[in-house]
């Protein structure tokens, strides 16, 4: 009788612990197989059959359709250069060189991956070919609820958000291995 009770406790607790740990471990992406440049993180292998089990589980449970190697790479930033969580109440400026790619887009997404919109109702996204660059080839993009001078990515509302930088037909990984690309720095300006 005592043995049965103990067995029950071990199984029940084990299931609870194992299940809870599994649930917790797919709430966020992990460092496995990731490529981090400053505040930007990418999972170039996310959609491939060679991805690690945690990334695979996360991709499947969210129902994501990750970009494959011949399509592009997706970098996500959750924090600004100082390490503060990105907030829709603040304005930011992205500055610097971008990695070599045929084109890139910069978009603002909510915590759950949905697209955000500016106050004019248009989606928060800009495409590289519509950007202006300085003489050294650097780009400067204002991310703010209010109209910014030069290149502007509009955001609106309040709460945290993620910046997603997608490089298409990119040379991040070539046959000689990893090319460490430069990513723009996210500098916080003022907050409401």
């Amino acid at each position: 009788m005592r043995f049965l009770l103990e067995l029950f406790c071990v199984v029940a607790l084990g299931l609870l612990l194992g299940g809870g740990l599994s649930w917790y471990s797919i709430q966020n992406r992990h460092g496995f197989g990731s490529l981090t440049i400053d505040r930007w993180t990418a999972w170039p292998q996310a959609g491939s059959p060679d991805a690690d089990p945690y990334t695979k589980a996360k991709v499947a449970s969210d129902g994501e359709v990750p970009l494959d190697s011949a399509e592009g790479v997706e970098f996500v930033a959750r924090d600004d250069a100082q390490g503060q969580r990105l907030s829709r109440n603040c304005s930011y400026r992205l500055m610097g060189k971008t990695p070599v790619a045929r084109l890139w887009t910069l978009a603002a997404h909510g915590e759950d991956g949905r697209t955000l919109f500016g106050s004019d109702g248009k989606p928060s996204v800009v495409v590289s070919r519509n950007m202006t660059y300085d003489q050294e080839g650097s780009v400067s993009i204002g991310v703010s609820p209010m109209l910014a001078s030069g290149n502007w990515l509009p955001i609106s509302g309040s709460g945290p958000f993620n910046l997603v930088f997608r490089l298409y037909d990119a040379q991040i990984i070539n046959d000689r291995g990893l090319v460490r690309p430069q990513m723009p720095v996210i500098a916080r300006q003022d907050c409401v």
Binding site: G18, G19, S22, Y54, K56, V59, A60, G63
Partner: peptide, 28 residues
Amino acid sequence: LGSLTLVFAGIMHILIILLIPSYAAQDA
């Protein structure tokens, strides 16, 4: 008993993570 529980939980965790791609209810 405690260590037995931990070992069992670990095995369950590995199994669940490996099985999620096959049984995810809201996959693509």
